[in-house]
Amino acid sequence: MMLLSLHNLSVKRGRKRVISEVDLTLGQGEVVGLVGPNGAGKTTLMRAALGLIPADGQSSLAALSARARGKAVAWMPQSREIAWSVTVETVIRLGRTPHLRAGQKQRPEDQAAVDRAIEQMGLDRFRDRPATQLSGGEQARVLIARSLAQEAPLLIADEPTAGLDPAHQIAAMRSFTQAAAQGRGVLVSLHDLGLAARHCTRLIVLHNGKIAADGLPQDTLTPSIVKTVFGITAFSQITDKGFVFQALDLTS
């Protein structure tokens, strides 16, 4: 079953096209990494796919009503806003918003989803702490847990691992892999190509608003693409521990 399909999606900012004619489908069990240099249009593409900004072309998510979309996809924006000093559990419980009708009280299955997300991100000891008092990395984990608690078939996360320590970067990527193993799909933008290469089932390389490559990590992070898109050289090899990618140097 397709969880996301984009057809001919374009976004204009002023007269400039920042996303041009993107075609993309994402199915169950996939962890798709969206990579590209700064300004390539990763965030814009995600927001346009969600229907949060006007776009030309088709997106299966943008066509849904706000409520149906809330059940179809969980979105973790890049800006990690937590406006009030509510507890960690309260933040994560907000992920259940799309599942509740106006005025409906939280049900046992909502609490169960919240508990699963807390467990998955290892946040149990923070449960009752004010979320605003946590460090940036801990807040990021809380917000990942919030999007996991939504338990939508598709999760779209914009640089969820930025600012996390290595252990928690891996833990976050594993939670995405786990979600995919349960039949969900994940689209995640990443700057760490090594992390993307290791944990994503498929990579999409975005360059100047266009898809430059789409496929398995080893097929997309080729020396020529890495050179033209990112302007770097890299070491990469398929080892007995999987595909390993390490950026080395600038090309110029």
Partner: peptide, 11 residues
């Protein structure tokens, strides 16, 4: 509380 983008995406 989680910002306008997150709230809108939650329906």
């Amino acid at each position: 509380t989680l910002g306008e983008d997150a709230a809108e995406a939650m329906g």
